[in-house]
Write a protein that binds this DNA or RNA. Structure first.
Lengths: 111, 111
DNA sequence: TCCATATATAACTCATAGGTTATTTAACCG
DNA sequence: CGGTTAAATAACCTATGAGTTATATATGGA
């Protein structure tokens, strides 16, 4: 499957979105996720595999634990895809676009 | 299933994303979609049902045809969900936020 | 009314998703 | 080395998704 399909499919599960919300607060282990979600360890491991395959998280190792960490790049790709439709719901899109261009120029100079 | 899960699940299929891209150009019938996608009519009908159930499109009737039309509100909801993670990939998010607040004030006065 | 056209529904196949429990692997510690 | 803890894998179940072909429904027109 293509990367974007994997990303959207990963986001289509409320448990996985909750896991991402938890990871936004910091790295977390499988055990710390299994408890609040009232779910078996293997189930959490599977969800993490889906998220990892979608590029939304990465894993590391600390002793016996394998903490998961948020990887936002894939979210950005999904956001960019949706952004192409922004003009269909946001009447101010064109104005905003001009402002953002201007802002980027400013940042390029000052930062 | 919750609305957001339905939306992301609908977007997780490349054929359905292509259908949305086609609908961004204007309303389209089942027949006009089946041909370029080399797919049977019933398959298109099923994809349209998924998109409609996700709130991403609406249907109407013109003679024997049932044109489909893009409904961007559901896309906005998905975009808003992802936007909460923007700070994780966009270092300029805080600055941007200030600019957008300012812009909204301006629009409130002038428009 | 009868036929043609466009779409939807029914019935089916095959693959995958999400969950379970039981077992195995990996890493630390006495 | 032997035990303990954390996580992954295996094997399984059930439900759902995406596609097919065949059939039914709805609309328009001669």
């Amino acid at each position: 499957m293509d990367a974007l399909s994997n990303t959207f499919a990963a986001l289509a599960d409320p448990t996985r979105r909750a896991i991402l919300a938890r990871l936004a607060l910091g790295e977390t282990t499988v055990g710390e996720l299994a408890q609040p979600f009232a779910m078996s360890g293997p189930a959490v491991t599977k969800h993490l595999k889906v998220l990892e395959h979608a590029g939304l998280i990465s894993r590391s190792r600390v002793a016996q634990q394998r903490p998961a960490k948020l990887e936002p790049a894939a979210l950005k790709a999904a956001s960019d895809w949706i952004a192409e439709y922004r003009r269909f719901w946001d009447a101010k899109f064109d104005d905003l676009d001009a402002y953002l261009d201007e802002l980027q120029k400013k940042n390029g100079e000052s930062k």
